[in-house]
Design a binder for these strands. Structure first.
Length: 117
DNA sequence: TGGCTGACTTTCG
DNA sequence: ACGAAAGCCAGCC
């Protein structure tokens, strides 16, 4: 739960996992958006680094996390470079040349979707 | 134990 | 407008 993020002093990784898990089907977000949501936008790299552990965390759709341009930069860390793209396409997200088409449309902004008050 | 590296983003020159 | 550098923090030699 998101509310527990601010309540509990969970590890940075756990917070990232929690947010990533909330990404709806057919949507995607960026490392920076998650980092910013967690209040450490400058640590966007850590979000990506956190995904290293996300692979062993079931239920964490790491393929729905891309860089701010919609490029599947993390695809190289999947079982195969095209694994990430195929997963996204399987969710109806069109991917061309390692980049999400109309990323702004499929972009899932935690600040908006989670409606922070 | 200490230092390097990294699935990024932003800002300064 | 483009290129380079910094900042973030935890895991892994």
């Amino acid at each position: 739960m998101i509310q527990t993020l601010s309540e509990k002093h969970a590890d940075f990784f756990d917070q990232v996992y929690a947010v990533v898990r909330l990404i709806p089907f057919g949507r995607a977000t960026s490392y920076g958006a998650i980092a910013s949501y967690l209040g450490v936008k400058r640590s966007a790299r850590m979000v990506g680094w956190a995904m290293h552990g996300a692979a062993k965390h079931a239920g964490v759709p790491a393929h729905r996390v891309v860089n701010r341009n919609g490029y599947l930069t993390g695809s190289i860390h999947f079982e195969s470079p095209n694994q990430m793209a195929e997963l996204l396409e399987g969710e109806g997200v069109q991917v061309v040349d390692g980049r999400i088409v109309d990323f702004k449309k499929v972009f899932w902004d935690p600040f908006v979707e989670l409606a922070i008050d």
